[in-house]
Write a protein that binds this DNA or RNA. Structure first.
Lengths: 219, 219
DNA sequence: GTCTATAGTGGGATAGAC
DNA sequence: GTCTATCCCACTATAGAC
């Protein structure tokens, strides 16, 4: 806009690029620190230092600690549920291959990506305590779930599933099961073996096909 | 021990009784405040006020805010999973009555007892971040799960479930599903209708009976 | 001896000057 | 982006009330 005629020929980084880079570094650092210390427990000093900047730099990029957190909540919802959907897309939902893949995903999320589940829990607690972001949170969860729902929908159609069973309901169940198992594995890994998620899905889909609306006799 | 010869003949409350009552009131208040504000977000002043005491009273009963929280973590783990176990004990696991009961429980925990899930999430986060209490937490979760496992075990025996399916695994799945659905319902109630938990269990148990170790054909 | 009142210490969030 | 000042709050300690 203004007549800064000496056009900077990309010496190293454009100002906008530099600013975007700092923001990204701060967001990464914030994700780590929030996951490890919690929203209130995290100090902006620690976040700034982890990113390699000063507190003032953080406040020049984000209005407040809360604003920084909310930006993470809104944007960085790389829900791993979407990965489960992709896996189910490649493998038939009742087979050993699919079970193995899903087991690997569960272990990966629960054991390797140690910051994921705690950060997600922080998001959840914040949303529950601050109704104004409830809808944002719900929308973020809906997006990956829709991918899962899509896969399940075709999967149900291929099999002889009764028509009353909605793919949306099944997708919700699968997602809830996944997060629940990840959570439990962090507390007591022995109680959640690698193959449990795959087994549970095997049972679930078999049961959907077998039982229709009314369960066919008690025994 | 000491020669306080004038034995106090229970005017109103024994000192020990009074102290126990104060402690109990403080613990109740702490549970509420921790659920609503989180561990670090909660102030001891708010907890003391909520209980009707002063800060000093709190510190004369508990060494620190953390000690108060840890006492809750260790003792007040009235896991609602145990209630699900009792319900399944009365009703056959695949019937409409059981489903209705379980749906009611889900709604009760998710919608009515608004402090339960957040407090549980706080416990989980604290355990994940403080490995020294991980085992305490695991033990607390194991106790109600064992009750659930017991019920499921007899339920599986009554039905024609294959022997390879362990009641422990199924109990873990049921518990994970329950907490996952409660969590999801707090964010997006429409996505978790009342009957979903019961339906999911119906599918699950039907699938366990239908499929043995190897899924009997893909279609 | 059990609870209350209060003031002091230290650390962190935030805003404004450079 | 950095530095500095200010305010707020958790926690401690001490002294007094019942």
């Amino acid at each position: 806009m203004n007549a800064e005629s000496a056009e900077p020929a990309r010496r190293r980084l454009t100002r906008a690029e530099a600013k975007a880079r700092t923001r990204a570094l701060l967001l990464d650092a914030a994700a780590r620190v929030f996951a490890r210390k919690g929203f209130t427990g995290a100090s902006v000093e620690e976040i700034a230092e982890a990113a390699g900047f000063s507190i003032g730099a953080l406040y020049s990029n984000f209005g407040s600690k809360e604003a920084l957190f909310l930006e993470l909540l809104a944007d960085r919802q790389t829900d791993r549920i979407a990965e489960a959907a992709q896996m189910l897309e490649c493998h038939p939902s009742g087979t050993g291959e699919a079970a193995a893949e899903l087991g690997r995903l569960l272990i990966d999320v629960a054991d390797k990506d140690t910051d994921f589940a705690p950060l997600q829990a922080e998001f959840w607690l914040y949303a529950v305590r601050n109704p104004e972001v409830l809808e944002t949170m719900a929308a973020n969860l809906r997006t990956p779930r829709r991918a899962l729902q899509q896969v399940i929908s075709t999967s149900l159609a291929q099999q002889d599933a009764p028509a009353e069973v909605s793919a949306e309901a099944v997708a919700t169940v699968v997602a809830a099961l996944f997060t629940g198992l990840v959570r439990q594995r962090r507390i007591d890994p022995a109680s959640v073996p690698e193959e449990l998620f795959g087994d549970a899905l095997k049972w679930l889909f078999a049961g959907i096909n077998a039982s229709g609306a009314a369960p066919s006799g008690t025994e």
